[in-house]
Amino acid sequence: MIHSAKKTSLVAIGILAAILIVFFISLNTGTIPIGPADVVRTLLGTGDGSFDVILFDFRLPRMVIALLIGIGMGIAGAILQGVTQNGLADPGILGINAGAGFAVVLYIFFLQDKLAGTGSLQVFIMPLFAFAGAFLAASLIYALAWKKGVTPVRLILVGIGVNAAFGGLIIVFQLMMEPKDFTQATIWLNGSIWQTSWNYVLALLPWIILLVPYAIYKAKALNVLTLGDQIAVGVGAPVQRERTILLLLAVALAGACVAAGGAITFLGLVAPHLARRIVGPNHKHLLPICALIGALIMLVADTLSRTILAPSEIPIGLVVSAIGAPYFIYLLIKE
């Protein structure tokens, strides 16, 4: 065990170093490249101020939010895979993206123009809608998959069905929209962190700070659940109660992340897998590493989304899918 803890620390330090390096490179890159010396000077406050706006108001907030979303989605995915005992589960399968997407489309279609005058309040209403939609969709899928308990297979299949229904509804409303609203909705639905401001960071931060340590604290319960219901009951764990708490935790984390960054799929699937390969199945070690890997992937994806088709940007969710889907297919083949 001591050996394992030591390995986890080493891995954590390694990934942190990688995050720092990518973070620094990412600060340099974008439509307007900024040299390393200028970045350091601007960060230390000794520059001539010409890069202050780009770095502090545009690049830094979106990079910080990318890190936070990576942490949140990584942990949510790990919890979900543990609870459902299925390595192929992803928060998207619980309908979180589709539900949030539908709520956001409804908001843009019915409410956005009416709330146009409310200023900064408006910035927070759309994420609230997204969060509520994510929660409702997850509950709906859980309820429909319930038949004297929930099996992982039913959860996945019902999830695919409900996702398709929400997809249909999204299209119905989207096609009735004005072109401007349509574009806004499309970009949101593909996961984007372009217009991130520090306000968004402040809105997401409490969720991460509160829920991530709680999830790590719950690692032991998660380990017991992973053994399967029979053994878990055998060692005296209140299985249904723990499962509900953990699922709620995952949905809250993923919902908050989706609210801040739009639909981002496959991250919650890929991060736990990579983490499990490196530090094994014990959630006490798995969860922190998973958070770090998620953060690293998001940071890399953000940098790519800015540079692949520069000067225009592609939504970060698409970059994550393009990386994540092939890995998922590889897992399908191998399992």
Binding site: L88, I156, L157, I160, T186, N190, T265, F266, L309, I314, P315, G317, L318, V319, S321, A322, G324, A325, P326, F328, I329, L332
Partner: peptide
């Protein structure tokens, strides 16, 4: 099959959407 279809849809969809 359902998962493979979902993954292929996601992959091709991300290219189409981009």
């Amino acid at each position: 099959l359902a998962l493979a279809g979902t993954a292929v849809t996601a992959l091709l969809g991300s290219f189409s959407n981009a």
